[in-house]
Computed example of a mutant assay.
Amino acid sequence: MKAIVLEKAGGPENLHLAEVAKPSIKDNEVLVAVKAISLNPADVKPKYQDKMLNMMYGEKRPVILGWDIAGTITEVGTDVTNFKIGDKVFGMVNFPGVGNAYAEFVAAPEAHLATMPDNVSFEEAAATTLAALTALQILEGRINKGDKVLIQAGSGGVGHFAIQIAKAMGAFVNTTASAKNTAFVTSIGADNAIDYHAQKFEDVLTDIDFVLDTLGGKVLENSVKVLKEGGTLFTTLDKDLPEDANAIVADKKLSINNILVHSSAEDMNTLKGMLENGSIKPNIYKTFAFEDMAPAHTEVEKGRTVGKIIVTI
């Protein structure tokens, strides 16, 4: 089969098309003929450092990056009960771990997939995986109707799903975005969009119940200032704060947490239902052909993506 492989650490130019063996499946797995792949910063950043690649993939080379897929099942393991050959499925495969998603065929545990809704394309399904799971796993069970939430970077992959999910949960949604993306974030459910070039969110927001942060650094530090007493913040990055911010956390009795998304068929089925009823809709910023994986990575690295980058096979 064809796959995009990485022989050594480096930039997008190190990604290249190769012929590799088709994976065999375990009893609890299915083999998916991949039609679409979603890219994430988690795919793109590790390739630059051997240390990071070794931590995530071991020292064996080449490696096949990626986790997010949508496609059609071609083989079914003997212990699989929820799927059959011909089913269209989507999911984030083996995260954290090795997903081997940049390939024509992917071996995926049954427990990481859901059947695709009839009303979405392979591209839309692939987009609704790691980023959507991250937003769901942070927000589910933590947001109440009427809560005032702040979604940082609302036009990004995680952010644009988080806006829609928080809105579906009945929250009042504040978000940060550039002026050119204000119309987009409000169109998907944001009640208040703050142009971070023109305003400091910490100067205009108060009494926020919940903050979802994907940026870290000063944005994380300033986010604690807008939370009400007893408020909650979740970040996808390091939650370490400087001394003055920690003083605010202690004084206001805030809960500061970080989270690492994990593969889950249960959560994928929740997203399936939200796609079916229109609660969420992925925004596909650009689509690339499989052989154009390198420029697709370059596009993600620009950090200006509105929604998701998709690669099709």
Rank of each mutant, 00 (worst) to 15 (best):
K2M: 04
K2Y: 07
A3P: 01
A3E: 03
G10K: 12
G11N: 15
P12G: 11
N14A: 02
L15R: 08
H16V: 08
E19M: 14
D27N: 15
V32A: 06
K35E: 05
A36E: 04
A42I: 09
A42V: 06
D43I: 13
Q49K: 14
D50Q: 13
M52A: 15
G58A: 15
L65A: 14
G71R: 09
F83I: 13
G91W: 07
N94W: 07
A111Q: 12
T115I: 10
P117I: 11
V120A: 06
S121E: 05
E124F: 02
A125G: 05
A126S: 11
T129E: 02
L139S: 00
R142L: 11
K145L: 01
K148P: 02
Q152D: 00
G156C: 15
G159H: 08
A162C: 12
I163C: 13
Q164F: 00
K167M: 08
A168L: 11
A168W: 06
A171G: 05
F172S: 05
T175K: 03
K180E: 14
D191Q: 08
D191A: 08
D195N: 12
Q199N: 13
L205A: 09
T206L: 00
L215R: 12
G216Q: 14
L220Q: 05
N222L: 02
V226A: 00
E229Q: 11
G230T: 08
G231D: 14
T232F: 09
T232G: 09
T232P: 06
L233R: 06
D238V: 14
K239Y: 00
E243I: 08
A245C: 08
N246E: 14
A247Y: 02
A247K: 12
A250M: 07
K252S: 04
L260P: 06
H262S: 11
E266K: 15
M274N: 14
I280R: 01
K281M: 03
Y285T: 09
F288V: 13
A289I: 04
E291Q: 15
T305F: 03
T305V: 15
T305S: 04
T305I: 10
G307N: 12
T312I: 10
